[in-house]
Amino acid sequence: MTTVQDLSDAGRRMYRGAFFLFVLAEAMIFVTLFSTRFLLAGMGHPAEVNGSLGLAVTLLLVASLAPLFAGINRIRAGRRGAGMLGVAALLGALALALIVYDWATLAIPVGSRYGENYVMSTGYHALHILLGLTGLLIVAGADSRREFNAANHWQVGAAAVFWSFVVLTWIALFAVFFIF
């Protein structure tokens, strides 16, 4: 998928639009997860929830958006953005590591209604971080092989859209599990 394809404008529009269909389907997963959390565990969260860690993950993920868009802008300008994309992926990987650490040191009883929803949702989200990271690394690798040019780089856009979606759902998850 990463060979340079000379796409028409319509072709680029198609790939961009079609990718949002993925994102819509993915969003439905999180709609289900979050509504289940409220249905089963009601409002409120136990005091043991590691809020500072959640905040740290949020900040890392939000921060990763800056190098992500910087990388895209560089590619759009005809330069190489692989380094910036790599930085974004690094921040994402740190966030993932934090989530794994959180799981390892979880103070919430996993058997409680809140706990199982917490584990399920963060687990699902971690899977999406992993997918997003894979996507970022693939396009970063392709870019370092000069497979994109200023006009044709919809794959980078797709990876960025997915990563932005991952960040946004984490923010929603943070609100759903750490704030409410």
Partner: peptide, 13 residues
């Protein structure tokens, strides 16, 4: 597109 992810999540639950 809208409802398959919902049941997929249900299956995971």
């Amino acid at each position: 597109l809208i409802w398959v992810p919902v049941i997929g999540t249900g299956m995971i639950f």
